[in-house]
Design a protein around this nucleic acid. Structure first.
Lengths: 196, 196
DNA sequence: AAACGTACTTACTTAGTAGTAAGTAAGCAA
DNA sequence: TTGCTTACTTACTACTAAGTAAGTACGTTT
C-alpha cells in the first residue's frame, strides 16, 4: 500500500538501539544487559546478538549515532541561520530536553564514571563526541563574543569545556536530587553568558 | 612492645573499606565485586561478607565514612581558623588531591550516573553527603562575599551547587581526556570566584 | 522449483555475581 | 579446662552475564 518508512514502528535493529540508549542513560553501561533489552522487545537475547554481536558493538553504535546526529544538527539551516546567542539557547534547549525526557543525563555524564571499564573503541568514540561538541560550542562562543552578545573571559575552548561540564554535572544533580537543583545551576550559567 | 595503632597496616575491615572505595571511584559501584577485593587482599570473598554482609552495607559504609570525614574536616581548627577565601582554596586543594591521587573522580561523580541502580540506603546517604557539602560551601561563599573577598551573583546555595557540580564534572573530564581539561576549568572557576 | 539471504529461535557454554551454611583455628575470659 | 568470640576458609546455591552454534520460517531472486 505504502512504501513510506514506518515511523511509528521502527525496525528491530533501531528499536534495540533506541532502548539500549535509554537503558544506558538511565542505568549506565554495566547495569543493563541483553536480557533487559530482549524482554522489553519480546525477542530472545540471541536476536540482539544477531544485530550487535557484542555489547561493545552496541555501545559503539550508540555513541556513533549520537555523533552523526550532532553533525547533522550542527549543519541544519534551521540552526546555522541563527545568531550565536540563539545557537547557544538552542543547545541549552537540548539539555532541557534531556532533563524533561526522564533521561536526565547526557552520554558523557553516563559514561564518564565507568570510563575505565569501557571497551577501548567506546572510549575513543566518546572522546571524539566530546571533542566535536566542545569544538562546536567554542565556535559559537567565539562568534558570540565577537558580536558582543555572549560574555565570558578566557579562551573559547576553555569556556566551552567548562559550560559542557557544568551542564553534564547539572543533569546528574537533577537525578540525585530534583529538577530545582538543575534549574538553579542552569539559570546561573545563562545569567553569566547572556547578560540582560 | 607497643600499643599504638598499626598505622602502616590497618586491620582487614579497614583495608576492605579502603580498597572498595578505591574500586568504586575508579570503576563504579556495579563494576567491582567481592572477588576483586578478596583477590587483592589475599582473602576469600566470604571474609568480605563477614565484615560487610551485603554489597549495600559496603556501599553505605563508604559514603558514611566520607560524611564523617567531612564533618571532622569542617570542624578542624586548622580549617575554621582560616578566612573564607582560604577555606575555599582548601576545598579546591581536596579536589586537586582527587585528581592527583589517580582516583580522578569524587563520590558524587562516581555514583550519580548509576544512581537509579543503587540500593535505597546508598541513595539516601549520597543525598545527605551532597547536601552537607553544599551547605558547607554555601556558608563559606556567603561569608566570603560579606567580607568582600569572594565574588559571585545570586544565592550562595545556588552558586555552591554550581561550583561543586563543575568540580565533579571537571574530574570526569580529566578521566575521559587528560589533566589539562581539568586545569582549564579549574582556573576558570578560581578566576571568577577569587578575582586578582 | 531451487537456492539464498534475512531475521530470527532454541539450546547451549563459560564465567562471573551476591550471598549462605558449616566448619575451624586462635585468643581471651570465667 | 571449658566455653565463647573473632576472623576467617571451604564448599556450596541460585542466578545472571555475554556469547555461540545450529536450526527454522519466510520472502526474494534465479
Amino acid at each position: 500500500m505504502s512504501n513510506q518508512p514506518q515511523v511509528l514502528v521502527p525496525d528491530t535493529r533501531t528499536r534495540i538501539l533506541d532502548l539500549a540508549q535509554q537503558l544506558l542513560l538511565s542505568r549506565g553501561f554495566n547495569a543493563f544487559s541483553y536480557q533487559h533489552i530482549a524482554k522489553e522487545l519480546a525477542v530472545k537475547p540471541a536476536a540482539i546478538h544477531y544485530h550487535y554481536p557484542t555489547k561493545e558493538d552496541l555501545g559503539v553504535a550508540i555513541i556513533q549515532r549520537q555523533r552523526r546526529r550532532l553533525h547533522k544538527w550542527r549543519g541544519l539551516p534551521r540552526l546555522t541561520d541563527l545568531l550565536p546567542q540563539q545557537q547557544l539557547e538552542a543547545l541549552f534547549e537540548v539539555y532541557l530536553g534531556h532533563l524533561q525526557n526522564e533521561q536526565r543525563v547526557c552520554l558523557f555524564g553516563s559514561l564518564a564514571a565507568e570510563f575505565r571499564t569501557l571497551p577501548e573503541a567506546m572510549q575513543q568514540e566518546l572522546r571524539l563526541l566530546t571533542l566535536e561538541l566542545t569544538d562546536f560550542l567554542a565556535g559559537v562562543l567565539e562568534a558570540g563574543r565577537a558580536a558582543g552578545t555572549i560574555a565570558f573571559k578566557g579562551q573559547p575552548t576553555a569556556k566551552a569545556a567548562q559550560v559542557l561540564t557544568t551542564l553534564a554535572g547539572a543533569l546528574q544533580m537533577a537525578r540525585v536530587h530534583d529538577e530545582r537543583q538543575f534549574h538553579m545551576i542552569f539559570e546561573q550559567l545563562r545569567l553569566e553568558l547572556l547578560p540582560e
